[in-house]
Nucleic acid binder design. Sequence first.
DNA 1: TTATAATGTGAACGAGCATTCACATAGAGG
DNA 2: CCTCTATGTGAATGCTCGTTCACATTATAA
Lengths: 211, 211
Amino acid sequence: MPPKKSTHIRRKEIVQAALQVIGEKGVQGLTITEIAGRAGMSDANIYRHFKGKQEILGALADFIGEAVMAKAAAIATGTEATLKKLNLIFRSHISLIAANPGLPRFIFSEEIHLGDPHLAKTIAGNMTGYIETLNNLIGAGIKSGEIRSLSPRETAITLLGMIQFTALRWSISRGDFSLDAEAERLWSNFLRLIQADSSATIPPTNTREPV
Amino acid sequence: MPPKKSTHIRRKEIVQAALQVIGEKGVQGLTITEIAGRAGMSDANIYRHFKGKQEILGALADFIGEAVMAKAAAIATGTEATLKKLNLIFRSHISLIAANPGLPRFIFSEEIHLGDPHLAKTIAGNMTGYIETLNNLIGAGIKSGEIRSLSPRETAITLLGMIQFTALRWSISRGDFSLDAEAERLWSNFLRLIQADSSATIPPTNTREPV
DNA sequence: TTATAATGTGAACGAGCATTCACATAGAGG
DNA sequence: CCTCTATGTGAATGCTCGTTCACATTATAA
């Protein structure tokens, strides 16, 4: 009775359905029945397209890694000023989370990290790559004088931590504050934290930094 | 055959066992059987001391809130310099996590936040209180001139995000890096981020900050 | 000592969930 | 039109886990 679709279509639908389910019911609420219902098919049909739940998680991890990393890497290779690039990455990350609330939950969920070790490696690798991208960007910003003399890696981790913590607080509170507004406040403050002192807040005297 | 203990003893043992189990097997691995085994009793006996699993989670949340908040609040009311206090809170938080790897997992676990709404409120309240404590501390530091002119609340969130993100990365990687060493690097960089410019890193000339 | 309550346990129950199976049926290629 | 394969489904299976129950046994207090 129901129409049929090819496997590569179904796989995408299933992965998207899974991401939506996580956004609403959490990773613990991610059951085959729930995914199937969301994707508009029977439980059994899931197994026509995936070997099992673990494989769905794997595909989801790949999709997320692709989405987050690809975007950041693309921005990083642009021609804008470093701080502008950082801001773009930050905003795009926040937007992605706002559109997919399941994202931060999934990335830090135990189902992944304690389940399939191979999957854990994938995510950990993506995370390291992301840190590395920010690391390089911040390093460049320091060299160009846009950013103060700091440890690029630790500053990158601080930025990512800010994003993740906020995303989790937002997810926990079921969205009882505006993610965008909070992100804006945090970014504004982060700028003050890292910016070179040419625009220092208090002192009238202005010491030029050596390049 | 086995010796008997009073309920208030058993409750503590059960809560500690639960925290240990989470540290080893994650929140998803937190089963009644696992808790009972760790606490050295039968599954059924758990129910002599707790109404159910949810109540155990509630008691655990209370314990953690107590441990983290009380420590931070105590340090905050001390007589040391603000930056010293911040450092103490930071270190004590990291130590607590190192000793109880289950802590960050539990605080951000879905079992709490999507399970019992009352429990979620408790945790969210503790988190807000913690942010508030840091907020006030940083505000004082700004006033005293130890800390640059920043948004105290956003800076507090940045610091907490740094801690949580690192704790989760550490937990995820099953401790394949030294939490203490990483924390030390992050703190050192954080100091450079927030400190008033009197001790600027590069310039030889030293401009005195007005109080 | 003895009665009573608190503490302890193995076994069983029932619900939820991932997965499999036997059986349809749509669509593509001949 | 006919066949064969990919896609789709309801029902059944087996497992895990939270919880309950009937039945000890220890501690306590009178």
